[in-house]
């Protein structure tokens, strides 16, 4: 059997434990799947695979147990799925009947967002799709995730770029009855940005993270929702070297800024990646170039607007698994 593993993997097929079998990876941008596509996934799994799918952590499906010889036929079968999930949202795919054109840049995942969730500040799937349009197809190994509010149910803090919704709360003092539901709740579940002054509420903008809890708790609509903004956290990761939670890069950024950052990330990677390696994860590139160079590249041609706050340093924390660095022989 002869297989070009690099081409196969780029086509979203896996090399697996079983030398004769591969596994197909289907991406669902934003994690929202029209169920009319499920019968196709079922058909592929039953006709070519082992009758099961694995639901991935990145909101996709892996269809295992497929013989390599069926890749071309299955790629053709996938056409309506790729048309619906990628081409229709504006992703440029030249030959949708030949399977996925790349796999390095991973599916953009999203929490269920404000289609269902009471906390979510925005439509997370819509933003995930707009990001997919900008970053896919692409080869660099990049993980981006979108979550509707600072609860971060999607764990965007474990991603190269994580986007969290923020809402600017607006306060109408005339409508406030001083019940302090917002204040107590902010202290209990969020950052304690609210205090009572002369029976009305004062908000410390430097502490407020835009979770919208005050709006949710206000009985009189004294607190209502103002503009939508985004916190952008970067370079979170798992892995064998130095897993770490992402650090905040920007807060109170506008949607257009978020999209531009996603595009600029690829310019930065292309400029600084170590091409002697088979692949280099973007977080390690940033470790090498340092934050100032990363920042300069990311903010090229970006108008941050008046609200956005830019991190002066990246404050990472996380275990160092390299014993030579983190342990002494005793």
């Amino acid at each position: 059997m002869t297989i070009n593993t690099k081409r196969v993997m780029k086509n979203a097929w896996r090399i697996t434990r079983d030398r004769n079998l591969t596994c197909l990876r289907i991406r669902v941008p934003g994690g929202y799947l029209p169920v009319k596509l499920l019968p196709l996934i079922q058909e592929i799994a039953e006709r070519f695979g082992n009758g099961a799918v694995h639901i991935t952590t990145r909101q996709g499906f892996e269809i295992p147990g497929i013989a390599f010889e069926h890749m071309t036929e299955i790629n053709a079968l996938l056409t309506p799925l790729i048309e619906e999930l990628e081409v229709k949202i504006g992703v440029t795919i030249d030959q949708p009947d030949q399977g996925y054109p790349s796999a390095g840049t991973r599916n953009v995942v999203a929490c269920i967002g404000n289609k269902v969730c009471t906390n979510a500040v925005f439509d997370t799937t819509a933003l995930a799709k707009d990001i997919e349009k900008i970053i896919y197809p692409n080869n660099p190994h990049v993980k981006i995730a979108v979550t509707g509010c600072p609860n971060d149910c999607v764990k965007v803090h474990m991603h190269d770029i994580g986007i969290l919704g923020q809402v600017e709360p607006l306060y109408d003092a005339q409508r406030c009855i001083g019940c302090q539901a917002c204040i107590n709740n902010c202290h209990k579940v969020s950052t304690g940005a609210l205090t009572l002054v002369n029976y009305k509420v004062k908000r410390d903008a430097s502490r407020c993270i835009g979770c919208g809890e005050c709006v949710l708790k206000c009985p009189t609509a004294a607190w209502t929702r103002g503009g939508k903004y985004y916190r952008v956290v970067i370079m979170g990761r798992t892995g064998k070297k130095n897993p770490r939670v992402a650090a905040t890069f920007l807060e109170w950024a506008e949607r257009e800024v978020v999209l531009k950052l996603c595009a600029n990330l690829y310019v930065y990677i292309d400029k600084h990646i170590d091409r002697s390696l088979p692949k280099e994860h973007v977080g390690y590139i940033v470790d090498r170039t340092g934050y100032p160079i990363f920042k300069e590249e990311m903010l090229k041609n970006v108008d941050l607007g008046s609200k956005a706050q830019l991190a002066s340093i990246l404050n990472f924390a996380g275990p160092m698994y390299d014993n030579h660095v983190s342990f002494l022989n005793t």
């Binding site: 979510a120 925005f122 919704g165 206000c218 609509a221 209502t224 939508k228």
Partner: peptide
Amino acid sequence: KGKGKFSDADLVG
């Protein structure tokens, strides 16, 4: 417009 408790929700007031 947009004055509902949840995002992208209106309120009749």
